[in-house]
Structures are given as C-alpha cells and as structure tokens.
Measured scan of single mutants.
Amino acid sequence: NQASVVANQLIPINTALTLVMMRAEVVTPMGIPAVDIPRLVSMQVNRAVPLGTTLMPDMVKGYA
C-alpha cells in the first residue's frame, strides 16, 4: 500500500504548505501520494484542512 499525504496540523485556507505540516500515512481512500511531498512545499491549500485529514489533489492549488 502506498502512503498518502496527511495533515500534521490544522492548515488554514490559503496557507502555503511546509514539510512540518505534512506526514506520510497509509490511508483509505488514497490521497496525494507521499512521494509528492517535496512538490507540495510552498503550494497553497484552497480550503482549511483539519489535523489528520488526507490531502486530495483538489485541495491544493496548482497540484492537479
């Protein structure tokens, strides 16, 4: 099973992602693959992402 990107903290809307905000976890359903974490750094979320939420492609501006 491939790990997905999960929020390590509450990420407010329009926040630029940093490594500290994300962790890799095997979850269902799968979200953004953990291998993409370096690519996500400095991209912004388009909604508030609660702690423990799996990041989906439509939550990150410019990802999809």
Rank of each mutant, 00 (worst) to 15 (best):
A16L: 09
V5G: 02
L55W: 01
V45Q: 00
I11M: 06
T15M: 09
T15K: 04
M56G: 14
A3F: 09
A24Y: 10
M43H: 05
L55H: 01
T54Y: 02
E25F: 05
I13M: 12
S4F: 02
Q9C: 06
V5K: 01
P57C: 14
S4I: 01
Y63H: 04
G52Q: 05
A16P: 14
S4E: 01
P57A: 14
T53C: 05
V41D: 03
L19G: 03
P33Q: 08
M21D: 03
T15F: 08
A7T: 12
M30I: 14
P33F: 04
V27I: 08
V60Q: 01
T18I: 04
I13Y: 10
V5T: 06
P29L: 14
R23A: 06
P38M: 06
I13C: 12
I37C: 05
G62F: 07
I13D: 06
P12M: 08
L10N: 13
P29W: 08
V20P: 03
S4V: 03
M56Y: 12
T54L: 05
V49T: 09
D58I: 06
V20R: 07
R23S: 07
M56E: 09
K61G: 06
N14T: 05
V41I: 11
Q9A: 08
V35C: 05
N8V: 10
M43F: 12
R39M: 11
P38F: 10
M22S: 00
L10Y: 08
K61Y: 10
D58N: 15
N1S: 15
L55E: 01
I11A: 01
T53E: 07
M30T: 12
R47A: 10
V27T: 12
L17G: 00
A34D: 15
P57M: 09
N14G: 10
N1R: 03
Q9H: 11
M21Y: 10
V20H: 09
L40W: 02
N14A: 09
P29S: 07
A24P: 12
A64P: 09
L19W: 08
A64N: 09
P50D: 11
P33A: 14
P33D: 15
L19D: 03
L17A: 00
I11G: 01
N46A: 08
V45K: 00
A7M: 05
L40G: 00
P57H: 11
V35Y: 07
M30S: 13
L40D: 00
N46K: 14
V5L: 04
R23K: 10
I37G: 04
M30F: 13
T53Y: 14
P33Y: 10
M30E: 15
K61W: 09
N46F: 12
A48H: 13
I11T: 01
R47I: 06
E25G: 05
A7Y: 01
P50T: 13
P50K: 12
T53D: 14
S4T: 11
L40K: 00
T28I: 05
A34W: 11
G31T: 01
P57K: 09
I11C: 04
L17N: 00
M43Y: 14
Q2K: 03
V26T: 12
D36I: 05
M30L: 15
L51I: 14
R47C: 05
T28S: 14
V35I: 09
P12H: 11
A7F: 01
A24D: 15
P50G: 11
G62T: 08
K61E: 11
A48K: 07
T18L: 07
D58V: 12
A3P: 13
V6W: 02
V20T: 11
M56H: 10
N14K: 06
V26I: 10
A48D: 15
S42F: 14
V35S: 13
P38R: 04
R23H: 06
V41E: 07
P38E: 08
I11D: 00
M22T: 02
Q9S: 14
V49M: 06
M56C: 11
G31F: 02
P57I: 07
V45Y: 00
V60D: 02
V6C: 15
V41R: 05
Q44P: 12
V5A: 08
T28C: 15
L10W: 09
V45D: 00
Q2R: 03
A3W: 08
V60T: 02
P50V: 09
Y63G: 04
I37A: 06
R39S: 08
S42Y: 13
S42Q: 06
V20Q: 08
V41L: 14
M59N: 08
M59F: 12
N1K: 04
K61I: 12
M21G: 03
L19C: 04
G62M: 14
P12A: 11
N14L: 05
N46C: 05
M21Q: 04
V20Y: 14
T54G: 03
I13R: 06
P33I: 08
V5C: 11
Q9G: 06
V45A: 07
V41C: 07
E25C: 04
Q44K: 06
P38T: 12
Q2M: 13
P29G: 05
M43N: 07
N46I: 09
V49H: 02
T28R: 03
G52T: 03
V26P: 10
V45T: 11
A7D: 01
E25Q: 05
T53V: 13
N8R: 07
E25V: 05
A24C: 06
N1D: 15
V60R: 01
V49K: 00
N1L: 14
K61S: 13
A48V: 08
M59T: 08
N14V: 03
A7P: 01
S42I: 03
P57V: 12
I11K: 00
G52V: 02
R23C: 04
N1H: 11
G31C: 03
A24S: 14
P57E: 10
P38A: 13
L55Y: 01
V45H: 00
P29F: 13
Y63K: 03
I32P: 01
E25S: 06
G31S: 02
N8Y: 07
L40I: 12
V60C: 03
A16C: 06
N46Y: 14
N1I: 15
T53W: 14
A16G: 04
P29E: 14
I13W: 13
A64L: 15
L17W: 02
S4G: 05
N14R: 09
N1M: 15
V5N: 01
L17Q: 00
R47W: 07
V49P: 01
P33T: 13
I11F: 01
G52M: 08
N8E: 09
D36T: 06
E25T: 05
T28G: 05
V27C: 05
Q44L: 08
S4K: 02
R47L: 08
I13A: 10
R23M: 08
V27S: 10
A3I: 06
A16V: 10
R23E: 03
V41W: 05
I32M: 03
N8H: 14
N46W: 15
V49L: 09
A3C: 15
G52P: 00
M43R: 06
R39Q: 05
T53P: 00
T15W: 06
V41Q: 08
M59C: 05
K61Q: 11
R39N: 05
V6P: 00
D58W: 07
M21C: 03
S4R: 02
A64M: 14
Q9V: 07
V35G: 09
M21V: 03
D58Q: 11
M56K: 08
V35L: 09
T18S: 09
T15Y: 07
M56I: 13
E25L: 04
R39V: 10
L17E: 00
I11P: 00
K61V: 11
I11Q: 00
V26G: 11
I32T: 02
S4L: 01
L10M: 09
T54K: 04
G52D: 11
D58C: 15
N14F: 13
V35H: 13
P33L: 06
K61M: 12
V41G: 03
A48M: 09
G62W: 11
I32Q: 00
A34C: 07
M43A: 12
L17M: 11
N8Q: 12
Y63A: 04
T54Q: 04
R47K: 12
L19V: 12
V60S: 01
T18H: 10
Q9Y: 11
A64K: 11
T28M: 06
Q9N: 09
R39G: 06
T54I: 15
A64C: 12
R39D: 04
P29N: 14
G62S: 14
L51S: 13
L19Y: 10
V27R: 07
V5Q: 00
L55M: 12
P33W: 10
Q9R: 08
L51H: 10
I13F: 10
T15P: 01
T28F: 05
I11L: 11
N1A: 15
Q9M: 11
R23W: 03
V41T: 13
Q2P: 15
Q44T: 14
M22K: 00
V35T: 15
Q9L: 11
V41H: 07
Q9F: 12
N14E: 09
M56D: 07
M21R: 03
R39L: 13
M30D: 15
I32K: 00
G62E: 14
D36K: 04
M22D: 00
P50F: 15
M56P: 01
A34L: 03
V26Y: 11
V6L: 11
V41A: 08
G62I: 05
Q2F: 11
